[in-house]
Design a protein around this nucleic acid. Structure first.
Lengths: 327, 327
DNA sequence: AAACAGACGGAACACGTTTTCCTGACGACC
DNA sequence: GGTCGTCAGGAAAACGTGTTCCGTCTGTTT
């Protein structure tokens, strides 16, 4: 735990001035190769790592971006964080984490703190697909998953319509012609959008109306009873993996085979649900890590001086498993 | 997006020097109250927030701590992160996130980066309870969940023995006298420790040997078949909620009532498992958020100059639900 | 031999803050 | 009236880096 060496220590050891040492280590200026090597060896020997506080002050940048999330425990925020961190660390940027827990007071506190740290940019993400109010800060911002209500801001979201449509097209391609949809509360944008896309894509093959309830296995199980009371179906497209798992459980309890009698699709590719389900779920992967990566890249471009690009919808990916294909 | 004001701008507007402005804003030095007010008003008017890079350089501290996790997607790391962030943000410290993904190369990269940032301290956490090799950095470190192999380092972990014992004591207090234990791989320390504690606590009431397998629902279901082949039990203490859920599912399929015929306990209080299970699981809550909070507090003390305190085992909490109590 | 170009490296400054030291001014006291 | 003490505030230095500018030295050209 000895004192960390400064660039002047390196310079002294190499027998040059601090500015020369700086040039040698940053591959800038005009120096003899021999001098560069000598400085590098000195730095190596001392285990010198430049103090990024000094660098930040000098360069005007902090090489730091803030990540504001309304809910870091959510299974949506986490892969986004990972992707973002991945893309940022490649560029030697650090990510400071701020979990607002949906508290406006906390949020403004964190914003002040980030501005005080002179972060180079901010990523804002949430756990719902509802657009959210933009934040007012003097640095570039990119919204991930929850877009900004201001269409001029840069936002990156998943293509919910496309995802739901791909699941239904998959069911149609398997010859299913009586397709139902079970999903979360109608008040949730993601549920509404996916339901609309399912209805539209299924066309004549859609049975009844989309069934709205909770995002839970329990509702999935219950929805099966409701559905079968209304007649027969040969496929159920669900708004989440949790619901789909409940649907599968109930169908099995009733002696229906999945997928022989009824094919089932989920949504989210939440592995702990999709893989633990019996049978494992065909589902729509949100590619959130990719979303996080793209978000970070766009932020880096904005920091580099590019202008905001508005809303970007990233494609999802259908992951076929036994709940539609059988074994 | 105009330029952010510096303290010199504030000073100029208030008609004083920069040093006076600094003193006014930090409640230090000897100034007339009137002058202080004038500076404060000027700062307010300009929306001035001190640049923490300058402050960091001047104070010798960065007001930043690093969080190194081997797996930020894990359900263990996340609550720990939240708790730590909670405790740190109260002290105006920021948390920079580093997910090594269990890659030694990444880890050393991040360590260099954190040292370069002159973080005031580092929290190291993992997804397993196995002790891990300490990191070599010139700043205070606290290990959370995965302790350091060096007993002199400060580590904060959950009391695995106590947690498993509390579940078994709960079963005993309900009158169960034929208790089995189903858990994860014997090679996992958490499985081994919990199993040993279960055997010891149950005493004569323990049936057979602990059953080791995967941390999965599938293994839980399978384990029930294995168990019942060997005779009757009236309680199954499980090493994880996933296993417990599988156990419950299989028991129900076989027509056994939970908890009337067999009481079941889980471990982790992973809500998505524990609450979705039929019936909801009595389980052991790891209190990870509290663990994260304590970790951060200890780190702050270390940063403040305290000396390392060695291993700290935090108590767990038994959460009784229907899988042992019935409805 | 003088002029010149180019390579090399150092001195000085900038970044924004905090802190230490110092200068006046003023009143009080001997 | 001179000295001392206190108060108010400014000047300067410090933190550690990067960068700009400028001087020197070497080797080349006329």
């Amino acid at each position: 735990m000895r004192a960390v060496p400064r660039i002047t220590d390196v310079a002294a050891l190499a027998g040059v001035s601090a500015s020369t040492a700086s040039k040698a280590l940053n591959d800038t200026g005009q120096l003899r190769e021999e001098t560069r090597q000598r400085v590098r060896r000195a730095a190596e020997q001392l285990g010198f790592t430049p103090d990024s506080r000094g660098r930040a002050l000098s360069s005007g940048r902090s090489y730091t971006v803030g990540l504001i999330t309304t809910d870091s425990s959510g299974r949506f925020s986490i892969p986004i964080m990972q992707g973002a961190e991945d893309a940022l660390s490649a560029g030697e940027m650090a990510l400071v984490l701020c979990d607002t827990r949906d508290d406006a007071l906390r949020e403004s506190h964190y914003l002040r703190s980030l501005v005080a740290r002179r972060v180079d940019g901010i990523i804002v993400t949430g756990r719902r697909t509802e657009p959210r109010a933009p934040i007012d800060v003097p640095v570039p911002v990119v919204y991930a998953f929850s877009p900004s209500t201001d269409p001029g801001d840069t936002s990156v979201v998943t293509d919910d319509r496309g995802g739901a449509a791909s699941a239904v097209r998959h069911l149609l391609s398997l010859g299913r012609r009586r397709i139902a949809h079970v999903t979360g509360p109608a008040s949730h944008r993601s549920a509404a959008v996916r339901a609309a896309a399912a209805v539209e894509t299924a066309g004549d093959a859609f049975v009844g109306e989309p069934l709205h309830g909770e995002w839970s296995e329990r509702w999935g199980r219950h929805a099966v009873d409701v559905l079968l009371r209304g007649g027969e179906v040969d496929a159920i497209s669900c708004g989440s993996d949790q619901i789909a798992r409940g649907v599968c459980d109930r169908l099995r309890e009733l002696g229906r085979s999945v997928p022989d009698d009824v094919a089932v699709t989920g949504y989210d590719n939440w592995s702990v649900m999709a893989l633990a389900s019996r049978p494992p779920l065909t589902t729509v992967d949100l590619r959130l890590e990719e979303l996080g990566r793209r978000t970070a890249q766009l932020l880096l471009e904005l920091i580099g001086g590019a202008s905001p690009t508005g809303l970007l919808e990233l494609p999802t990916e259908l992951v076929p498993r036994e709940s539609t294909l059988g074994t």
